[in-house]
Simulated scan of single mutants.
Amino acid sequence: MNIGAVDHVELYVGDAQQSAFYLCTAFGFRVRGQAGPETGRADSRSLLLRQGGIDIVLTSALTPDHPAAQYVSRHGDGVAGIAFEVTDAAKAFETAVERGATAVEEPVVHSRSGTEVVTATVLGFGDVAHRFVQRTGDRDDFLPGTMDIFAADPDESARLLHTVDHAAICLPAGELGPTVAFYEKVFGFSQIFEEFIEVGEQAMDSKVVQSPSGKVTFTLIEPVTGRQPGQIDTFLARHGGAGVQHLALLTDDIVTTVPAMEERGVTFLETPGAYYDELSQRLDEPDLRMEDLRRTNVLVDQDHWGQVFQIFTQSMHVRKTFFWEVIDRHGARTFGSGNIKALYEAVAREKAMA
């Protein structure tokens, strides 16, 4: 199937312009294109946001029968599609359907002035679809003939983020194994990591699948039944089933990026001082200065290959489900899941001392 990187991520939202304003103001994205009635799309409006190699499409319904209206009604604003770069979209679509994927949209050719984009879509998990995207010509012409493209912002100095690192996906209990098998069979992904995570009386299972290119990574999580309900149960109840809990965006310098985003209005989760007091007992010396980690509330973990630094935003979602992660990799290939337990225990200790 030859899946490359994430081509783009599409969010269905109640108000694309309002969502774009927040992501541009706070995260540093720029609006690069639009589609709607003026471009021949009568039932919806989409805005293309870009920063570095990250393309985000925000789509709002203009009619009640558009899929975005139905999605937002069920789940609220959230990720509805994760698109894959491929060399042959029609062939990838045919192969995926043969392997058991549900077809959503047959191959469609979009063309203009020597640029051609072929797209085709299948269903992934829950209500989230995967679009295969085959591009020939000018990549800046995102969807030729359907989307108008604006001139690039000449000011690149504000770029804070550059790649989609991974998506974290919450699944109902019992769906983790079948979902891993689905991605292995249909898309040729491989499982690269797994962990059983206990946080007090709560527990969850996590497995990570990745494309052969190593550029598309999904962290899949399900709650463990028979334990106290936790954050995964809360997400599933409020979201209304399986969905993307957060998207992780890669930065090259997290201790610079985080304060810059805070100045723009992003609110990150705070980390108790006890977390850093206990850090040396479970990790090697961090690559970044401890005082910088404390100052920015950045978490750190490590695997066999290196260290990973990460921080999560507070959810701006009305249901408090979807949020963002900023991540900085210093060689690490996994996802700092040890931070979940360490942070939970640090908070408990700090509360006990208060």
Rank of each mutant, 00 (worst) to 15 (best):
G4L: 03
V6R: 03
V6N: 00
D15I: 15
A20K: 15
T25V: 11
V31I: 15
P37V: 14
E38G: 06
R41I: 09
V57K: 13
T59G: 05
P64A: 15
Q70L: 07
G76T: 04
G78E: 05
A89V: 12
V104N: 10
V108T: 05
H110P: 03
V118Y: 00
A120H: 06
V122I: 06
L123K: 15
R131C: 04
V133Q: 00
D138C: 07
R139F: 10
P144V: 03
F150Y: 12
S157F: 15
R159A: 06
L161R: 14
V164F: 05
C170P: 05
P172D: 05
G177V: 11
P178N: 09
I197V: 11
D205Q: 12
D205M: 12
S211W: 11
S213T: 06
V216I: 11
E222H: 08
Q228L: 11
G241C: 04
L247G: 11
D253L: 07
V255I: 14
T256C: 10
V266E: 04
T267W: 05
T271F: 12
P272D: 14
A274E: 11
E278D: 08
E278W: 01
Q281M: 10
Q281K: 09
E285I: 15
R289N: 04
E291D: 09
L299T: 01
D303S: 08
H304G: 14
V308N: 02
Q310G: 08
I311P: 02
Q314E: 05
R319V: 04
K320N: 10
